[in-house]
Every structure is written in structure tokens, then in C-alpha cells.
Simulated assay, not measured.
Amino acid sequence: MVREDGKRNFALRDPDGNETSVFSGNTPRQAALKAARRLEDVGDSEADADETELHLREKGTDKVHKYEAWAWEEEAPDDKPDWMPGDITKANVSKQGIEHIEE
């Protein structure tokens, strides 16, 4: 279901099918990147980061977008704003496919 600003809502699903959080974005990948940045298992570098499977259900549909996600911490750039912390979390995702749920 698309909002007036063009963004769509995606619910993060756990393995039991419970929807714990909602992320918005113009594309499913944008929402997956937001979800990936909040992963608990964050590596010291992109190479050291562990992959985690994310399932995002598009609100208003039966589509579940499946991603492999990983996140790592990096030092913030020198020209960062004053409010930004010294370390930032970066993330990347790789789409594994779409499945349709029947509930």
C-alpha cells in the first residue's frame, strides 16, 4: 500500500511469523537497509560482519521480501555534524527472493 509521498511500509517478520517492527521506504531494499542497520550482530568491518536473514512483508499485500543482511561499524567521516557519534553503523543487503504468504 503506497502512501501519498510514494513510500511503502514493510513489517519485519521473525521466524515465527510475528511482525516486530515497521520500516518505510520507496523500495523494499531501502527498508531492508534500514532494518539491517539495527541488527544486533554488528561486525568490525564489512568482511567480518555475519549475515542474517531478514523477511519484510509489504503492508497491504501477501508479499514477503527475503534478504541476506549484514552490518558493520565504521568511524564517522571528519566532516560529520556535531550531533553524530564517532562510530556509525553501515549495512548492506542481498535480495534472495519474494515469497507469498497465505494467512
Results as ranks from 00 to 15, higher is better:
R13P: 00
D44K: 10
A71I: 04
E46M: 08
D16S: 13
R3F: 15
E53F: 07
G43W: 01
P85I: 09
D82K: 04
D79N: 15
S94N: 14
Q30V: 07
H65K: 03
M84H: 00
L56C: 13
L33A: 02
P77V: 01
G6D: 06
T89I: 09
L56N: 09
F10T: 12
I88T: 09
H55I: 11
A11Q: 10
A36R: 03
F23Q: 00
W72A: 02
F10R: 12
D79F: 11
A69V: 02
V42F: 06
A76N: 09
S45E: 05
D79W: 14
N9I: 01
A36I: 01
H65T: 10
H65P: 02
E99R: 14
D44H: 08
E74V: 07
K90V: 05
R13Y: 00
A69D: 04
Q30N: 07
D16F: 12
L54G: 02
T52A: 08
E102N: 14
E40L: 05
A76V: 01
D79Y: 14
W72N: 04
N26T: 06
A31L: 05
K80F: 00
N18R: 13
R57F: 15
W83K: 06
F23W: 10
V64R: 13
A31I: 04
K90H: 10
R37G: 01
E40G: 03
T20A: 09
Q30F: 11
P85Q: 06
G25R: 07
P81D: 14
G43F: 01
N26Q: 06
I88K: 03
Q30E: 14
L56D: 07
D14M: 05
R57M: 13
T27D: 08
K90Y: 07
R37F: 00
R57V: 11
R29E: 15
H55A: 15
P77H: 08
A36N: 06
V22C: 11
L12I: 03
F10V: 12
P85D: 02
A11E: 06
P77W: 12
G17D: 04
D5I: 09
F23N: 01
A31G: 05
R3H: 15
N9M: 07
E73S: 13
D50K: 14
D14E: 09
N18C: 07
E75N: 11
E51Y: 15
H100L: 10
K7D: 14
V2Y: 01
V22I: 14
E103F: 11
T52V: 09
A36K: 02
D87E: 12
F10H: 06
E19M: 08
P77D: 05
R37I: 01
N9F: 02
R37E: 06
H55P: 02
A76L: 04
D14Q: 02
D78C: 02
E4L: 12
L56Q: 08
V93C: 07
A11G: 00
D78E: 14
L56E: 04
V64S: 13
